[in-house]
């Protein structure tokens, strides 16, 4: 008898299931219905969905696939291509560290290292209490203030590794 076997080598990337509020889904549906046509607007809708839900878990991607009438694999293909889209919720205070060239030559990599050390998490991860998450981003265009760190909307310029503890203490 032939059966299907899954050899769980490596990590399964299936995100955890999430129960999300229905009104949020309605907001996305309304957005989709207002589009002139569905074709060509997958990235636009994913932007909307992420701004509504905060992230794009499996349910949301499936929902978008159904309503945009595209295969789920295609939705996932797009989500996994763009760094702006995330499948895990960010921390309450998302920390974004600019890794543009100007920030790099002024030591942004050391700042990243300091945040990782302090919070004991890796880039892209969230602290167990959900308070902070760390991400690096491309140039924010604030090169005069390099290296730049953003915590939520708050911008810190000329950050040194030594200031990291103090920055975290603000939250």
């Amino acid at each position: 008898m032939q059966t299907s076997t899954c050899q769980m080598v490596g990590e399964c990337r299936m995100p955890e299931h999430a129960v999300l509020p229905q009104p949020l889904y309605r907001e996305v549906v309304q957005f989709i219905e207002a589009l002139p046509q569905k074709e060509g607007h997958l990235v636009t809708v994913l932007h909307k969905a992420q701004s509504v839900f905060g992230y794009l878990p499996i349910e949301v991607q499936q929902f978008v696939a159904d309503h945009m009438e595209v295969p789920l694999a295609q939705v996932y293909g797009v989500v996994s291509f763009y760094t702006f889209f995330t499948m895990v919720p960010k921390g309450k205070h998302p920390i974004s560290i600019c890794m543009g060239t100007a920030c790099f030559v002024k030591g942004a990599d050391k700042v990243v290292h300091a945040f990782k050390e302090q919070l004991k998490i890796d880039i892209g991860d969230v602290t167990p209490d959900g308070k902070f998450s760390i991400d690096t981003l491309r140039c924010v265009g604030g090169c005069a203030l390099a290296p730049i760190v953003m915590v939520g909307d708050k911008v810190y310029g000329n950050v040194t590794p030594g200031q990291v503890k103090k920055i975290l203490a603000d939250f």
Binding site: C12, R13, M14, P15, I58, Q61, P71, L72, A73, Q74, V75, Y76, G77, S80, F81
Partner: peptide
């Protein structure tokens, strides 16, 4: 679908 990007890009089903 093509999934991921760069060196990790591969063809795979959703998730």
């Amino acid at each position: 679908s093509g999934v991921n990007r760069g060196f990790s890009a591969v063809v795979a089903p959703a998730f």
